[in-house]
Design a binder for these strands. Structure first.
Lengths: 183, 183
DNA sequence: TGATTTTAGTTAGATAATCTAATTATATTC
DNA sequence: GAATATAATTAGATTATCTAACTAAAATCA
């Protein structure tokens, strides 16, 4: 008796449909002026983006950190010694509310990865800095982060890679414009 | 006095760095065997994926629904009349725990978009179905969903589009293998 | 210059999406 | 028929968000 038959009656999983049923549904339900080819690409991008984020999260997890907190530490790292970083500017850059940044910073501060310092020029402002311990965490996680990024793309041939680079840069630019964000 | 000067002293925003500082950081911190070009592409994909998801979420929001719940309704729609859908099989497909599915279904059931029916063949199982009201919601949201998908890609030329399709299909396949998931 | 308004940050309280562990009921297996 | 496995739920927790209200400080204006 085959393994297939065995699992047949143990549990009813949903079969993997692949993309075709989605395209069929699109054919029936998209507006006339919606370009099917583009929507198909957008759907793929959505799925791929989801998976890419999951893959990165999985790698960051081993450092006891989530994507949101990683984003904060990365911003602090990249802007260190260049400009004064406040909770407000972080909120602005991350596209979240100041209150949400307060929560992230509380968590990071409790673990001594960042510190808050009152600004002397403007008593309302807080200067946020990464600590030595924080720098060490980032130094440990960065190599893994880059390798995770590259692993997403590892199947690509040299030629595909060059084409994709051009296209992704373009899409990223237009997307940032559309969403009014940027890194 | 220029507008630039005016905003200079109102608020200190973090300047948008673009990708170069990230690449510089990568140069310093990636492992030797990490392919820089691939990591660069992976990083772009991550950013783009983030933005794509945000854009879709924004559109679904107008229907009072989030991506997780949308995923459930879409699965119910696509598998309707084909197979018995249980909370377990949804959990399996969505890559989350049964307990999390219970919470999603509670929410959807309260709004009468799905119903639960006890299975008569196996008293432990629950049969989950989309309702007429649920179908109407999905019918309303689908055209917007497709148009949002296509809008992510709207800048592409015909040629780029064809290249990208091939590459994304390939990446999606390899990604699903790597992550052990699939749609 | 003093009153008013704006800004920065936090707090309080909420919702959403997830998790693990425990519980209950039903099936399956030995 | 007792032990084990499975399906679903419940209870309780964490993380990431949000809005609204609050406090303190700075800027404006009249």
């Amino acid at each position: 008796m085959s393994r297939k038959n065995k699992r047949e009656h143990t549990s009813d999983q949903l079969p993997k449909l692949g993309i075709q049923p989605y395209l069929d549904l699109m054919e029936k339900t998209a507006l006339q002026n919606t370009d099917r080819k583009l929507a198909h690409l957008g759907l793929l991008m959505l799925w791929l983006g989801d998976n890419a984020i999951d893959a990165i999260d999985l790698n960051l997890e081993t450092f006891g950190i989530t994507e949101s907190k990683w984003d904060v530490l990365l911003l602090l790292t990249l802007h260190e010694d260049r400009e004064l970083i406040t909770p407000s500017s972080l909120a602005d850059r991350l596209g979240i509310r100041r209150a949400s940044v307060t929560a992230l910073l509380d968590w990071l501060e409790k673990r001594h990865w960042i510190i808050r310092e009152q600004s002397m020029l403007d008593g309302r402002k807080i200067h946020v800095k990464i600590t030595q311990e924080g720098r060490e965490l980032v130094a440990g996680a960065l190599p893994v982060f880059w390798s995770a990024c590259s692993s997403i793309m590892s199947e690509l041939e040299e030629e595909e890679r060059m084409l994709l680079e051009k296209i992704l840069m373009k899409l990223n630019r237009s997307m940032e414009e559309k969403m009014g964000v940027g890194r």
